[in-house]
Design a protein around this nucleic acid. Structure first.
Lengths: 189, 189
DNA sequence: GCGGAGCTTGAACAAACGTTCAAGACCTAG
DNA sequence: CTAGGTCTTGAACGTTTGTTCAAGCTCCGC
């Protein structure tokens, strides 16, 4: 059962990076700490990921994919409901956890300091934006593509603000009002 | 002229930290790089700041003060204009520079990873929130203190979103629309 | 010019870091 | 059981990091 163990250990290493990054920031992510958190030997980290940048790259890709899943269309719902669900999903309790938000923050900071990481992040962001715009377009077919992109951009501004502000510990009610604001933007006539 | 030199060098060291932090992130801020960027010897950094945490603390305090200045009342303007000016100021070109925003991001990330830094940050954030609420209260005396605080909170969500989204490289027009949105929130009847 | 307080320097040290690697453990195919 | 590939280990190396410190410098009052 190589396959089973492989995936298990390799995935546990990535999990360890996520955990350490969100808790201690990039300074807390060193090969020894990752190995220890994952419960493997130091050398194994370098076995699966050639060097530290490769390790970070893998984490960035994983997060980008999970973000994209937030705005993935749900074939079983009406376009209106798909959009509404997606707008709610980004503010769901399991997303607005300190762990997840803190991780996002550190990844943004990381991307800001490194051109290569920035490229990965930018691509993920563009895809996310396109995803939101597509949901709006489905729910409001009469809108022009440009208008859909504008609304998506405006929504993302508020969403990013919600994410960031959740971390800074503002009260929940302002988050709730912000969700309503994203819906107003999306469904404005 | 000790006083002159002191302030000069000590301040240059802080400037160097700001520059390095915004360009390379916290991993790029090490005592040697700071000394080199400031044009002083390694030992001098530890002379003015006992250790690295002290250095970061000093930077956090400095940023907190400059944030507070953004929402400082201007005695020469009418309350309405004071509020409007403050809302525009946070989106001014000199604020929405990559350097400034990147610095903010790294400081937030830093605060997220360290409880002590978080405390400094939280206090600065609360003061900023109070500052915005006070401006609203002056401009709209008929509003209850709670309503002012709520609006201030909603505005800060959008502002944080603007700051963050500026970094992620979204188009300027969505920033402009977001500013209008903060004004709508502030002046809603 | 002398003395002393404050400022400035860079070498030196210990600890922590990323990376390499020889060695062993494990598992499967034959 | 054996051979061979894959996985796993931790010691070891060279580098970078935070911090210390003895020494020198600068400036001002006397």
């Amino acid at each position: 059962m190589n396959a089973g163990h492989q995936v298990d250990r390799q995935s546990r290493i990535l999990d360890a990076v996520l955990e350490l990054l969100s808790r201690r920031g990039i300074s807390g992510v060193n090969m020894r700490a990752v190995a220890s958190e994952a419960g493997v030997a130091l050398g194994l980290v370098n076995y699966y990921y050639a060097d530290k940048p490769s390790l970070i790259r893998a984490v960035l890709s994983r997060i980008g994919e999970s973000d994209l899943r937030l705005v993935a269309p749900d074939p079983d719902a009406l376009p209106d409901q798909q959009l509404r669900d997606a707008l709610r999903r980004v503010a769901a309790p399991e997303i607005l956890t300190t762990q997840y938000l803190s991780l996002r923050l550190h990844l943004w900071a990381l991307a800001q300091a490194d051109a290569e990481f920035a490229a990965i992040n930018d691509e993920a962001f563009d895809q996310y934006l396109d995803g939101v715009a597509a949901l709006i377009s489905n729910a409001r077919p009469e809108l022009s593509p440009e208008e859909c992109k504008n609304r998506a951009a405006d929504i993302v501004v508020v969403q990013n603000g919600m994410w960031l502000t959740s971390l800074l510990g503002i009260d929940k009610s302002s988050i709730e009002r912000s969700i309503l604001r994203t819906e107003e933007i999306a469904f404005a006539t």
